[in-house]
């Protein structure tokens, strides 16, 4: 059994140690907000936080995160950055199909945690590994700036 902290609660996983965190979250724990997109860390749909850092859950084994703090989209409404981002995402009506948006918000939350006032280049650097096939990029950019503004107000 591998033990880790998920959204502030300790959970035990019976999956084999080589199981990617993505599939342990989705299939064993029922946390389906974190999405499967590519399986090779090339799209960002599965982004979660491990000890606060944005991490691709599809290539991160549960063995590698044993004892660590994992945060998923399901907990984003319980911290002020997550709340600000979700509110900004709604105000700016960012999602279209919505499939990539959990990963987008997780990457954006990690960005705002280390850089409360990101400029366009900062946003490019932090978000360019999160693909969106619906082309919501300009809305994502606007929503990150909007959330940053509300957090500094």
């Amino acid at each position: 059994m591998i033990s880790l902290s998920l959204n502030g609660k300790t959970v035990q996983l019976s999956a084999t140690p080589d199981t990617p965190l993505l599939w342990a979250l989705r299939d064993e724990l029922g946390y389906t907000g974190t999405k499967f997109g590519c399986g090779i860390a090339a799209c960002g749909s599965c982004t979660v936080h491990v000890d606060g850092k944005p991490t691709r859950a599809c290539v991160t084994t549960i063995e590698a995160v044993a004892g660590k703090q994992v945060t998923t989209i399901e907990a984003m409404d319980s911290n002020h950055i997550g709340q600000a981002l979700q509110a900004a995402w709604i105000r700016n009506d960012v999602p279209q199909c919505g499939y990539c948006q959990s990963g987008q918000i997780m990457s954006a939350a990690a960005l705002l945690a280390r850089n409360p006032k990101p400029n366009d280049a900062d946003i490019d650097e932090a978000m360019r590994r999160n693909l969106c096939r619906c082309g919501t990029y300009n809305r994502i950019r606007a929503a990150i700036k909007d959330a940053a503004a509300t957090l500094s107000a």
Partner: peptide, 10 residues
């Protein structure tokens, strides 16, 4: 959009 709230919280 009415589907937006569910698409920002997983």
């Amino acid at each position: 959009r009415i589907d937006t709230p569910s698409k920002v919280n997983g």
